[in-house]
Design a protein around this nucleic acid. Structure first.
Lengths: 149, 149
DNA sequence: CTTGAACCTAAACCTTACTTCAGGTCTATC
DNA sequence: GATAGACCTGAAGTAAGGTTTAGGTTCAAG
């Protein structure tokens, strides 16, 4: 199938302006044009865009994504560098995951604390609950952040 | 213990300018000052800064963090709103975790692919490896992204 | 009591990642 | 072949989250 930019935007939920911006910045080099100059996207282009979105969500900068896209067109010469970029991305994502998991624990503790405080009608009372009465996930997260606020 | 801004910066690895910026924007309301106007941070202040950093890493905007800090000083009246903010943060972090985990799988597949391509000296050969010979994590991630690039 | 390193502020500047605008062109449909 | 809605471009604008600069003050060691 072939799509105009508005359809692509609709399908993947990214603004038209963003898709143009990515295209302009070399993140989607092989997009076709009509004789009149309008962009026409293939299913592969749409799929690629989804992949770009995923990488962006890991915090990968536009410039690095462009480098990566250029390397792909560079053939076998660039394999090593591409691997390096992906390995680097992998460690970043692993680090993010580890931190987010810990933070999620802390946030869950806060939520538990607010639930108890509202239930008991009193923050002091919630703060006085002994660790033994906390659910286990909450108990362990509590040690990572000594504020009950 | 009491610390000057440079020591805090050193200890937690955040630039001095950022700490000043956070303070100025109401994220650390209770920091002391010397008679001459220099900031003096307590252990609790340092701990609080670490907590702010964690929340920032989840993508929480500065403005929302400031609101949260103000609510804490607002007492019991604000419990409901504080809970709402933390619940909201929780779902955002959960969504991020889910997406990052999937993306990590895809990235791991790419790394595996580059390893094989470099090992075999040929991308075509790597692409020709049948799914049965892939490690299981890699095999499942491969289905999420049909590009071998 | 001096002096150099560390600190202060306000204001300007910067970077990243988009978004909006103005003015014009394409294209599918009637 | 007219026309409305979708598309185009380059350039300017925006928002968030800091960072840098300039000009001055404070602090602690000697």
């Amino acid at each position: 199938m072939i799509y105009a930019i508005g359809e692509v935007s609709e399908r993947i939920g990214l603004p038209i302006s963003t898709i143009r911006y990515y295209h302009k910045n070399g993140l989607m080099p092989h997009v076709d044009r009509t004789a009149g100059g309008q962009r026409r996207f293939s299913d592969d282009d749409v799929e690629w865009l989804r992949y770009l979105e995923r990488l962006r969500a890991t915090g990968m900068p536009i410039a690095e994504m462009r480098e990566f896209v250029e390397l792909i067109d560079g053939g076998e010469e660039t394999l090593e560098r591409r691997r390096q970029i992906m390995r680097n991305r992998r460690s970043e994502v692993e680090a993010q995951l580890a931190e987010l998991q810990t933070t999620l624990g802390i946030i869950a503790y806060k939520c538990w604390y607010y639930d108890r405080a509202l239930e008991l009608g009193d923050e002091q009372a919630a703060r006085a609950i002994p660790p033994e009465e906390m659910p286990p996930e909450v108990r362990s997260a509590r040690e990572l952040c000594r504020f009950s606020w």
